[in-house]
Design a binder for these strands. Structure first.
Lengths: 313, 313
DNA sequence: GAAAAGTTATAACACTATGTTATGGCAATT
DNA sequence: AATTGCCATAACATAGTGTTATAACTTTTC
């Protein structure tokens, strides 16, 4: 016989092994006794050897069956497991998300959001890979990651982005004379050396423009890519910086003062993902959760002076 | 949907993953395209999420499917494996045999037979457990082993036995005066101290009777359970022994002489197995092979003087 | 040892799974 | 706009899986 092995036959076999009689096995499976009976005769036919020996009223599996029993059990268990996992997936409780993000997010805010997200989703796992924006963009284009957190994003046909405009603030060491003001303006900073982002960044240009608009100019103390680094420097008494409020508040009790900066110059974050790679439902759910986590630091989209946006969805 | 996951659906899924189109997947499976098409829609229905995204002309699996892919592949592989193993079983090339034997067999003759037997049967594995006859009998009754090699067996209702009467010979160190004779009789041994089996053994009793029949008597030098031990002692120049020819020939070139002993006193081996436990085909095959391996040392069943047998099948 | 009780195998039939062919719609390409 | 190829659906055939009814066989009971 060149018949195919069927799962149902294995289920019947295991039920009979556990119950020692066909009748009670049928009861366990919730079907009639003749159904089990035939599943067994079919299986015996296919396998080519006897499955059971009669021993008084009982059926005991043959040596041959015992030899296969472990593997058969494994198949049935695996099928169950697949069923359970797929159930979890539809309930958004299983899956994997690969996230690429700016270094600043990898250590502070993102892990917090991830932890919260995983709390209710025991089957979900997440990869976090921090790198420069250029690399994150590449990864999106190559579809190597499901979700990216970047800035300075100028749009790309292979990437969908959702922009978030983060409020920024001015920070300086405690006891600094600027502490007498409720708001900080470029004019107030005319004699201060500033810690800021790279000169080629969009954020720096808008900052510089704000200074120029008040007929003053911006003096550089340190140029850094990360707001966190700027915060660190300031908390060590080093100078003045304009940073994302989100980063600033983490240093609130570490020897710095925080003041609104006027005019408001929001820092534009982009939540990106590959446009062609269909996202899993759990990925979309995470992106929403992440965006929500940023909400309390969100500001108005456009800086008041009306700089144009470069977003292309 | 509270549908059941079916193997065929998984086969279709994997085929489409490998082929990127339903049509070629159908070709791989050797069925029509609509058949695959429906298997997939059914599976999607059951799982509760999409299986593929269209990407130009190609179908690429969703994140969710990728998450399950490894497990699904494992199930299919396991099923294949079970099919192959069962095939091997019907061809008598797979299985397991548990053998209990006398210590003398565990080290010399049995491993040789086992090695030969396994040569053509790569899937077969064998357990060898040496112990005293009493323990071997227990193991048979408890059905803990498939096959036992013992002696002095007096029959038991839970055990089937097949008796083999092994020729015995007289051995003595090279250069011993007995070497002048072609056959050794009790009379010739009247002044010799003998190495023999335990006094309560059936074999010893028959040996002693042979001496009494010639109006002489047997003097003990050493009493041992194993013929191999007797051979070892003799080869070290220690005395005279009556042992199984099978054991004797292994010492043929180790400083001993071998002569027939008259009257012939065969040593009765019993090949036993549990009567209720249905033996696997491979077990029966092995027992036959083992019996055949003893054939060239087999002698007549009954000692000429007509001692009665105690066998009960 | 005959009767009773329980278990299993077979037959006849119903429904579901899985295959077929025919066909129409949709997308990519010409 | 026409062509080509791929996929989904419909209609139907066959095999797998369930049902009930019933006969045959075992074990237990008297």
């Amino acid at each position: 016989m060149k018949q195919k092995l069927r799962l149902r036959q294995f289920e019947a076999l295991m039920a009979v092994i556990h119950n020692s009689t066909v009748t009670s096995a049928a009861k366990e499976l919730g079907i009639s006794q003749p159904a089990v009976s035939r599943l067994l005769t079919d299986l015996k036919q296919t396998l080519g050897f006897s499955l059971f020996d009669r021993r008084g009223g009982q059926l005991v599996p043959t040596q041959e069956v015992r030899f296969l029993q472990a593997d058969i059990q494994r198949v049935l268990d695996l099928m169950d497991q697949i069923g359970e996992v797929s159930q979890s997936i539809t309930e958004r409780k299983a899956g994997h998300i690969k996230i690429a993000c700016l270094p600043g997010f990898a250590t502070s805010h993102l892990p917090m959001v991830v932890a919260q997200f995983l709390k209710d989703r025991p089957g979900v796992s997440i990869t976090i890979e921090p790198d420069r924006p250029e690399r994150i963009l590449e990864w999106m284009i190559d579809e190597q990651f499901d979700f990216g957190i970047t800035d300075g994003f100028r749009g790309h046909s292979a990437v969908v982005s959702r922009d978030i405009h983060m409020r920024t603030v001015c920070i300086f060491p405690k006891g600094h004379i600027l502490g007498h003001h409720d708001e900080i303006t470029p004019t107030l900073l005319c004699d201060e050396k500033i810690i800021h982002t790279r000169r080629d960044s969009n954020f720096f240009q808008r900052l510089e423009n704000a200074f120029l608009a008040e007929n003053t100019h911006l003096m550089t103390l340190v140029e850094t890519r990360q707001f966190t680094a700027a915060c660190e420097l300031v908390s060590n008494g080093l100078g003045v910086a304009i940073v994302s409020e989100m980063d600033a508040v983490k240093f609130a009790n570490r020897n710095i003062e925080i003041r609104p900066f006027v005019p408001s110059i929001p820092h534009r974050l982009s939540l990106v993902r590959p446009i062609l790679k269909q996202p899993s439902a759990i990925t979309l759910e995470f992106i929403d959760a992440f965006a929500a986590s940023l909400a309390r630091f969100e500001g108005p989209a456009h800086p008041p002076q009306g700089a144009q946006q470069a977003d292309r969805p």
